[in-house]
Design a protein around this nucleic acid. Structure first.
Length: 330
DNA sequence: AATGTCTTCAACCGCGTTGGT
DNA sequence: GACCAACGCGGTTGAAGACAT
């Protein structure tokens, strides 16, 4: 047994969040910024544990989260990143900045795992989707050959998925979240829930409040802060892929974000359990813009993908992949 | 229409990691 | 170096909607 759960205290509320709670949380974050989650329940009066508040924010309330159906492009990326990285959802999510790790994990478990298994095993669902799963029974030589093949396939597919003429996710700055600061509120449309139709009006007003709060907040906080993982104080995590990929000035990155041509904005769906809203997506072609305008260095993976001559980079990645993948085996 | 089963996904839980003292 | 609190991650659960019978 580890540490006792932080939510065992008497009076701590569990279960789905209400719009009212959302508003309280967003208002607080608007004022103080995300982070220092410990103090959130105390200062807001929310009967939630700090963990729950953080989760609600990161998985749901945070601006720029895309909800709804995954595109083919996203699906491809997930499949091949999963093959490359395994179930490291946070690392995978860093390459799909509009999606949360939870979303990707859910999507993998409910859609892609089965699909992938079928493709790989000709319909035998009992085997794990991860191509390394059966490796324990293979000789090391066999396993290495298989790994090389997997990496090659992943490279090919990722290259395809990341190609510049397609809609691109922000792979260069995985921690940079889309800003809603440029949202023209007239473009915001609400789609009302099928569930709890009786509450439609209350949810609508709740959502309007939340979106206004977020909008004001994005206006209020300076660019440098917003881009700093949106955490002004305290938190300092730099694990996994995030630590590899953030290679250029955050301000520069954010500037390019802001210079993005609004005419090509797509719509991002923002939703709560019972309300949905469409927001302009500022990410489309952002990476391309970044690269063209500021010569932003490609990430290690992209270098690897786009430059076959990048032998050193290639080797580094292969080493990383092999080391990580063999950790549990030898 | 009623009931049972399946699917989805938000939220929770436990544990590992990090950073401060 | 040990300890502790906070944070972050991945696995799992369970409520609710969708679908089948």
């Amino acid at each position: 047994m580890g540490r006792p759960p932080s939510c065992e205290k008497f009076g701590i509320k569990k279960g789905p969040w209400t719009p009212e709670e959302d508003i309280i949380l967003v208002s607080y974050i608007q004022e103080h910024g995300p982070g220092n989650w410990r103090s959130v329940p105390t200062n807001t009066g929310l009967m939630r544990c700090s963990k729950s508040c953080r989760l609600r924010w990161t998985n749901y309330l945070r601006p720029g989260i895309k909800r709804g159906n995954f595109t083919d492009h996203e699906e491809k990326m997930i499949i091949h990143l999963q093959a490359l990285l395994g179930n490291r959802w946070a690392a995978i999510a860093s390459y799909l900045p509009q999606r949360t790790d939870n979303d990707i994990k859910n999507y993998w478990n409910t859609h892609l795992k089965r699909k992938h298994n079928k493709l790989q095993n000709g319909g035998n669902d009992d085997q794990e989707g991860h191509s390394f799963a059966s490796s324990q029974s293979q000789s090391k030589g066999q396993w290495e050959r298989r790994l090389q093949t997997d990496i090659k396939m992943a490279k090919q597919a990722l290259s395809e998925a990341l190609s510049l003429h397609k809609p691109i996710t922000n792979t260069t700055f995985p921690e940079t979240k889309p800003s809603i600061s440029h949202i023209d509120t007239t473009t915001i449309t609400s789609t009302y829930p099928t569930k709890q139709p009786n509450n439609a009006s209350s949810y609508a007003s709740s959502y309007e409040n939340i979106s206004k709060l977020l909008e004001n907040w994005m206006m209020k906080f300076p660019i440098s802060f917003r881009n700093n993982n949106m955490v002004p104080t305290g938190s300092s995590s730099s694990k996994g892929a995030n630590s590899i990929t953030n290679q250029c000035s955050p301000d520069l990155a954010f500037d390019s974000l802001l210079s993005f041509n609004s005419s090509s904005q797509s719509i991002v769906e923002y939703s709560d359990n019972n309300m949905k809203i469409n927001m302009p997506c500022l990410f489309q072609d952002q990476r391309k813009t970044n690269m063209e305008n500021h010569h932003v260095p490609l990430t290690m993976i992209e270098n690897w993908l786009f430059d076959d001559g990048a032998v050193q980079c290639n080797e580094d990645l292969m080493n990383i992949s092999q080391e990580e993948s063999t950790e549990g085996l030898f």
